[in-house]
Structures are given as C-alpha cells and as structure tokens.
Nucleic acid binder design. Structure first.
Lengths: 324, 324
DNA sequence: CTGTTAGCGCCTTCAC
DNA sequence: GTGAAGGCGCTAACAG
C-alpha cells in the first residue's frame, strides 16, 4: 500500500502538498495539483483512513446495532440509511445483536474502540451496564424504534397510534373479538394502549385474553392453535414478522381462511402481506431514514439538545383474499 | 476519551506497561498489572483501535459486500459470519451494494481506506475496473456465491446441482412441462445446465421456452401470467426471493393452486416456502459460514494458495398444500 | 503557494 | 520487570 510519502516523492513535492490535494484545499497551484493527481493515479494511492481518523479524532462513521436482522424492516432501514450517509461521505457500520444484551454491550465497546462518531441502536432490553457505558463515553447515542432508556435521545414509530389504526379498522368491519399478539419483549411498546383506545372508542369491552404475548424464539403454533380454539377471536393483529408467519402457519394448518374466518392485519407491511393481500400497518422507510440522518447530524453539532421524535405510521389497505 | 497515557499516569507506570497489560504480555508483575487494570476500570479506558491498527497494519476486520440485502439468505450468512468472526476477535463490516457495480467499486475503495484485512463480496457483474482495483491492492478477496472473476478465490453453492435436484424431483412426479425462472443477471449461474441434465436423464426434451429470465427490478406479474397462458407449464422453479413472490402473486391472482394446478419448488428455502409448504432447495448456513471462516484465515496465512470451493445444497421436501 | 515541525494513540525495539 | 525512543500515515499550525 503506497502512502502519501510515496506520492510526494513521485510528484516531487512534500507530503503536505499531497495532503492538500486529497483534501481539495484551494491553495495548490493547478500544475502541482495535476502532478500529484497523476502520481496518485499511477500508484493507485488511497489515503489511510485509520491515520486520518486518528489525527482528526473523527471517523466519519456511524454505528448501527440491529436487534433483529431477520426482520426486513430493519434491513430496509439500514440499507436506506447507508445510501443517505454515503452521500455525506459518512459510513454505516451495521452490527447484528439478535436481541442479545451481552452482544449489544460488546458492540458498544467495539464502536468506542473504532471511534465511530455516533451510535444508532435498537435496544433489546434495559441494561444499566449499557446505560453506564453510554454515560461514561461522550459518543452520542440515539435509540431507534424502541424507547427504552428515558434519558437517551430517541426516534421511533408511534406504535400506540399504529395499533389504534389497525384495531379501528377491524372494529369498523364489525369485529368485536380481536386478538393482539406481540412478541414477549422486556419493555413496553405502547401497542396495548392504542388497542384499548380503539376498543373504548367503539364501546367494545377489553378482555384480558385479547392481548397475547409469545416467546420470541421458537415455534408457537400449538400455543396459538389452542388459544384460538379457546377464545375464538374473529380477528387478529400479529406484531413482528416471526409472529405473523407463525399465525399464518397455524391458520393454514387449521384450514382457516383470511379474512373469511379470521381477519388479520399485519403490523409491518412486507412481501407476505402483499402476497396474501392483507391490510397492514406501513412505515415510510425513506421518510424515517431522512429524519434519522437529519437528527444525527444536528446531534453531532449540538450534543446538548435532546430529542424524542415520533413518526406516525399509516394503514395500507388491501381488500382481496388470496386462496392458495 | 482517555488514552493509555491517562491510564499510565493514574497507575503510576509508563504507557508501555499499560500496553503490555492490555495485550496480556506475561512480563508484567502481578501487582503492577492489578494497579493498571484498576486504572483502566476507573477511567473506563478502551484502547483506540485506529491507533493500534495503524501501527500494526492490520485491522482485524473483514469487509462483506452484499449484493442483495433483501434476500434473507445473505443476511443469514452475514449474521452467522459475524458471530463466528467475533469469536476470533475479528469484526465483520457489512455493506449493501444492491446489485450496483458502481456502489461495489466505492465500497472496495472504502475498504482499502479502512485497511480491512480481507474482503468478501457477492459480485453483481463482471467489471474490469473492479478487477484492476483488486489486482493493484494486495488485500485478499474472496467472491461468494457467484464465481464471476475467474482468477479470484471463490466459495459458492453448486447451483447446477441444486437445479438438477429440484428438476429431478418434479420429473419424478411426472411433470414434463417445467419452467425455470431466473433473474436476469449478467453472468452464468449454471442452473440451466443442471436443469437440462435432469431433463435428459428422464428423456424429456428441452424446449427453449422452459427457461425464462426476468428483469430484477420491477413487477413481472403480467409477463408471468402471459407466459403461463401461452406455454402452460405444470411446474415451475422460481429462483430468488423476488421471483418467488411475484410468481405466487401471479398464481394467486389467477386462483391457481399449488401443487394442484402448478407445482412449485423454491430455489432457496425461506419462511414463505415453509408457510405454503412447498419443497425447496436448502442451504446449510452454518456449514457455509464455517467454511468461509476457515478459508478466510487460511487465505490470510497463505495468500498464494488459490481455491474455488463448492458446497452442495440439499432438497428440503414438503408435501402438504396450504390453501388460504 | 509550498515546506517544516509536531503530534494523534499505540506498539516494536532496545536499553536498563 | 519496566522505561525511553522512534515511527505507523496523516494533518494543523506555522514558516517562508
């Protein structure tokens, strides 16, 4: 790997001049600049970012810890975020935590070592170890989609409103026995709140069985099947890709038709929702990532200004039914 | 951010001793080591990896350029790879190229700047720009799942064999009019070869319409619908998540049942295949990533040894049919 | 406009 | 066992 000294020698200038050229400093004679550029080209020189970051104490990179890589929503966010950040010459470093706090902690340490300028993360659960870690370092941190740490800046989707929308849609169709199914995550999502709001608005009483939480890992088809037999809901709102798939599997095995027998609204639109034509709560990925980027840079400039942004989801209506 | 000097001062030693402690050098008195560890703890000191990598000229990081982030196969690979590499104290830097060669080139430059020790990538198409880029740098590169550059080390799945397996399965059920549908990518996958091999073995003549390629971006439901009307295949092997979904959408709109009207085998098992209970070609993620990690480290040690590994896929049999 | 000096945080080498 | 010197590749600050 050639260095700026190699380039300097070849172009017959000092390395400072090389530095000026690669940083587009205006104070370089056109002729000198061309000589340097030629040398750079010939040696296929690339500046060593480690050295540059070491010197400047900023790495122009953003860390992003994703709780669940198999949920395409987060991947779409990461992808769009990366595209946007690249335009600013910033890089996104993506890490998969798989809902494991210990892994999350390791990643934080890793990012501090790598001197990322700012950390985005979807916390998996509250951990005062991680909270202390964040407090002790002055690297800014933004929690995304889950507001678990009260003192840490956050950007999230209004899940209370999302569930409210979905529930209202089902109530409007005359359903009264609706089941909300969430993964059992160790924090409040606010979805139950929106669910109950909608019920109340329609004068439908809330009964405890209407809210079911399922273990995040493992197959819950049997549980679901028993639950449906017992409580006979006419509609369901499964939350998270994994639960959606398990619910469909179970309904399929029981030869139940959607929405003929059980109406379903997905919380998170995806290709399966599109395939079987079910209505879903939809998130505007591009709008969300634009907001994240905006907040991210303003946070770098003004670390003292705290924020807790909330984005409203939409209902994506689908009517027809697919029968396979 | 505290540095090794801060720790040294606090522990009353030289920074060299601090360095020895964080690198587990045996030549440190137990008492000194404890004093240093205490200072590290108190300052929540983390070594600056930029400085360390700059000095040692290795970053202990592996770059991974993913062609298609929305294909869960690649995400599963990335996730498993990251877990394995972390055990060796290596990091995986994931980049999403979205089948864009220009993006790919940018990422290569980025990785050279970041001094990653080795690059894994799923090339999107042949580009002599990228080939030259790779040749001019001495960072090892491994192409994954697509062997596009003949001279570059590769690890891939035997797609010829995979299609052979899938086709044979359909032929065994008596199908003679089988359609293989691939995304139109600018390189040979070898799938057609396996398809024809199987046909030949069963004495079924190959007809050109049996191989269809579709544009990678955009909806092809109309094309597919017209194609099915014209050629009336009784079975299909869609390749890639996107084509699978489009095919199902089309079949659903035409109220076709699988496998009653059209038998389908997915190339790549995923949750949708599981949901609608179709047979699929399955890849052993853990086996593949173990192989990648093994080859990766042996490549770092012996850059001169070239290799082209091939992993055999399996057929995952599913029998029942889901009717939604 | 260009070159020199000094230092970012760490580690290798060689003294003591 | 421990410390001092020097340098990895780059750039800010100051000379000229």
């Amino acid at each position: 790997m050639s260095t700026c000294i190699d380039v300097a020698k070849r172009a017959g200038v000092s390395r400072q001049t090389v530095s000026r050229v690669i940083n587009n400093s205006p104070n370089v004679a056109e002729e000198t600049r061309n000589r340097v550029l030629k040398a750079i080209e010939e040696l296929s020189y690339r500046p060593n970012m480690l050295a540059r970051s070491l010197k400047s104490a900023k790495s122009c990179s953003v860390g992003f810890v994703i709780c669940d890589p198999l949920n395409p929503f987060y991947i779409k966010i990461a992808n769009s975020l990366q595209n946007r950040l690249n335009e600013y010459n910033y890089r996104l470093v993506v890490l998969f935590a798989n809902e494991d706090v210990r892994e999350e902690g390791n990643f934080f340490n890793y990012m501090y070592e790598q001197q990322v300028d700012i950390v985005l993360f979807t916390p998996s659960e509250y951990s005062n170890q991680i909270e202390r870690l964040i407090q002790r370092h002055q690297t800014p941190v933004i929690q995304l989609f889950r507001k678990i740490y009260p003192t840490i800046n956050s950007i999230k989707v209004d899940d209370t409103y999302g569930t409210y929308l979905a529930t209202k849609e089902l109530l409007k169709s005359g359903h009264k026995d609706i089941l909300l199914i969430e993964p059992a995550l160790p924090f409040e999502t606010g979805r139950l709140e929106g669910f109950r709001q909608a019920l109340e608005e329609f004068g439908v009483p809330y009964r405890p069985w209407m809210f079911l939480t399922l273990p995040t890992n493992g197959q819950n088809e049997a549980t679901l099947s028993a639950y449906f037999s017992e409580h006979k809901p006419t509609a369901a709102i499964p939350v998270s890709k994994s639960i959606e798939m398990q619910l469909l599997n179970m309904l399929g095995e029981n030869a139940t038709q959607i929405p003929n027998d059980v109406s379903v609204i997905f919380y998170d639109d995806n290709e399966v929702a599109n395939l079987i034509k079910v209505t879903a709560i939809d998130h505007d990925i591009e709008y969300i990532t634009a907001l994240i980027v905006e907040k991210l840079f303003s946070n770098l400039e003004h670390p003292e200004r705290s924020f807790h942004s909330v984005v409203k989801p939409k209902l994506l209506h689908r009517s027809s039914v697919l029968k396979l």
